[in-house]
């Protein structure tokens, strides 16, 4: 039994045509899965379907054996899922520290330890903690975005093109840190 499984997902936005047709994704615990495909193949859409941001007409999504198809995105966050969208993935008008705080919004316990872990992973963020995230470079923004998603201590982290618009050197570094 895999940890995450999206089975026979079929759906599209609103009343429009099906964008996803009978798509099945399964990931085991501790596994790193990569979805590869050309532009417009539906990679992002499949991720959105798993996160509940697409109206599924058929199929279901299971997390750790539990059917979560009917849950809203914010309810899935509480189940331990984290998602970094491809674009608009930071709160541009808020500081780096506030971005991380918002990432941990659902937690009522002390978040300083997790924040220290994120800062240890991405030291540049600690330096720029008081700066609005909108003023950072592309690579630094991506680090904020990933850091924000890590703040909930998710069991499942989904990254949608984490290296889009980032230089190859920064990309290498980013992947080293992520993995």
């Amino acid at each position: 039994m895999s940890f995450l499984s999206g089975e026979h997902m079929t759906g599209g936005y609103g009343g429009g045509a099906n964008i996803l047709e009978d798509c099945t994704i399964t990931v085991d615990r501790g596994e790193i899965a990569v979805v590869v495909g050309p532009n417009g193949a539906g990679k992002s859409t499949a991720m959105k379907a798993i996160f509940g941001m697409l109206d599924l007409r058929e199929g279901c999504v299971r997390l750790d054996g539990e059917d979560i198809t009917a849950l809203s995105p914010q309810a899935r966050v509480r189940k331990g899922m984290g998602f970094v969208p491809q674009t608009a993935n930071v709160f541009t008008s808020m500081t780096v520290e506030e971005n991380l705080e918002m990432g941990a919004f659902i937690r009522d316990d002390d978040i300083s330890e997790t924040m220290a872990q994120v800062f240890a992973l991405f030291p540049i963020l600690e330096e720029k903690r008081g700066q609005p995230a909108g003023e950072l470079s592309g690579g630094q923004r991506q680090q904020v975005a990933i850091g924000r998603a890590l703040m909930t201590r998710p069991q499942l982290l989904m990254l949608d093109e984490p290296t889009a618009g980032v230089s190859p050197i920064v990309m290498d570094e980013l992947f080293d840190r992520i993995i």
Partner: peptide, 22 residues
């Protein structure tokens, strides 16, 4: 926290939902 969640929601609604803000 409530005030910051308002600013976050105003800044980027989708990301606010992804962060679990109600």
């Amino acid at each position: 926290r409530a005030g910051k969640s308002m600013r976050a929601f105003s800044d980027n609604e989708d990301l606010a939902l992804l962060s679990g803000i109600n």
